[in-house]
Nucleic acid binder design. Structure first.
Lengths: 196, 196
DNA sequence: TCCAAGCTTGACACCGTGTCAAGTTGACAT
DNA sequence: ATGTCAACTTGACACGGTGTCAAGCTTGGA
C-alpha cells in the first residue's frame, strides 16, 4: 500500500469513481477504467488484481475525499435523542448520492463475489452503528417507541435508510434530495419516537 | 405458447423455480436448470431463447400457481381505508417470500438486461397499483396524513414494501415473517394515517 | 553502465450465454 | 414397411468479460 507510488493509483481511483458516478447505463468494465486512467488493462491488474478490490479501494478513496467519517461523527454531537436522530439522517442521507455510483457497482457484485459482499457489509456497518447510536440516544431520553423491542428499532431505521430506498425514491420516483431527507426524518420520528 | 406441449415446458418452469427458490448461494445457470429438468442445455434454449425470457416465464408461472392476482385483489374487498391498507400489506407482505427466489434473479439481471428490467418493472406495477388504491381509500376516508402531497404517500408505501426491505429485515436481520408484516402495518399506519 | 520498477503488447485460459449443424428417437400416417 | 415430423441429442464454436502469463520497452537512480 504505502510502498506504492500514489500517482497512478490515485489516477485509477479517480477514473473509476468518475466512471461509476456518471453511471453510463452499462456496467463499467476494467478496460474502461484502464483507458480512463491512461494505462493498459494489464497494468491495471498490476495495481488491483481483482475487480472487487478496485471497487473496494474506490469506495475507501471516495470516503476519504468526501470526509464521510467526519460527517457521520459530527452528527453524534447533538445532545437530545430526537435531534441526534435528525442529524444522523441528515448526514447519512446527504452522503448517499455522493457515493451512490460506487455503491451501486459494489451492490451489483454482491450477488456473485464474496469479497464484494463482505466489503459492502463492512461498509454498511458504519451506518448500522450510526443507527444504533441514534436509537440508544432515544432510549436514554425515554422517548423510544415501545413498539420495537430489542434491536428492532435499529433494524427498522437501518432499512429505512438503505441505499436501495434512496435509489427508489430519488432516482425512480423523482423526489428531490431535500424531499427525501425531510420525509425520512419525519418517518423515523413517527415510527421510532413515542407519540405523546 | 399454446402450440407447445405443456409437459416439458412446465417441468422446466418448475425446476427453475425450485432452484431459484432454494437459493443455493451462487447464481443459477441455464445448465443447472436444464439438468434439473432432465434435458440438455441446448434443448432448454429451444424453449426459452434467452435467460431473461425463462426468468420472466417462471415468474408468471409462479404467479399463477400462487394465485397472486386473486390474493391481491381480495385485499381490495375491505371497505374502510385503514382496513384496506392493512389487508393489502398483509396480502403482499405474505406473498413476497413465495416469489423472492425468482424475483431476486430478475432483480440481479436488471442491471444488465433491458428485458429483465422491463419485466420486473411491469411486475412491480401491480404492487404499485395496490399501494395507490390503498392510499386513495385513505384519502376518500379523509384520514390520509397531510405530510405527503400528491403521489408521495404512494411512493413511500411502495418503497416501504419493497422486496429489498423484506430481504433486509427477514433474511439479514432475522425477523420472522409475522414480525415483518406487523411492523410494516404499524409503520404504514403511523406515517400515512393522520394522527388524532 | 547496469539494474529495477513500471509499463507495454500479445496471447491465452476460463466461464457463462447463445448459436449452429448433424444425427437419433419415437409417434403417427400412408 | 416407409416416410416424415417434432423433440431431443451431442459436439463444436463465437462472443464478451475477467484474470494470467511471458517477453520486450522506457526511464530514473546507484
Amino acid at each position: 500500500m504505502s510502498s506504492e507510488k500514489p500517482d497512478t493509483r490515485t489516477r485509477i481511483l479517480d477514473s473509476a469513481w468518475k466512471l461509476l458516478e456518471s453511471g453510463t447505463g452499462g456496467e463499467v468494465r476494467m478496460s474502461d477504467i484502464a483507458r480512463a486512467a491512461g494505462i493498459s488493462r494489464q497494468a491495471l491488474y498490476l495495481h488491483f488484481p481483482k475487480r472487487a478490490e478496485l471497487l473496494v479501494a474506490t469506495t475507501l478513496h471516495v470516503d476519504a475525499v468526501k470526509n464521510v467519517d467526519a460527517r457521520l461523527a459530527a452528527s453524534r454531537a447533538a445532545t437530545g435523542g430526537v435531534e441526534r436522530l435528525d442529524a444522523f439522517i441528515e448526514a447519512w442521507g446527504n452522503y448517499i448520492p455522493e457515493i451512490y455510483g460506487v455503491g451501486r457497482a459494489l451492490m451489483a457484485m454482491q450477488e456473485t463475489d464474496a469479497e464484494a459482499r463482505h466489503a459492502w457489509e463492512s461498509r454498511m456497518q458504519a451506518v448500522r452503528e450510526g443507527c444504533e447510536a441514534a436509537v440508544r440516544a432515544l432510549e436514554r431520553d425515554g422517548v423510544l417507541s415501545p413498539d420495537h423491542p430489542g434491536e428492532r428499532a435499529t433494524d427498522l431505521l437501518w432499512t429505512l435508510l438503505s441505499v436501495r430506498n434512496w435509489e427508489q425514491l430519488v432516482r425512480q420516483c423523482g423526489w428531490t434530495q431535500k424531499d427525501y431527507v425531510e420525509a425520512m426524518k419525519r418517518t423515523a420520528r413517527q415510527t421510532l419516537v413515542r407519540q405523546a
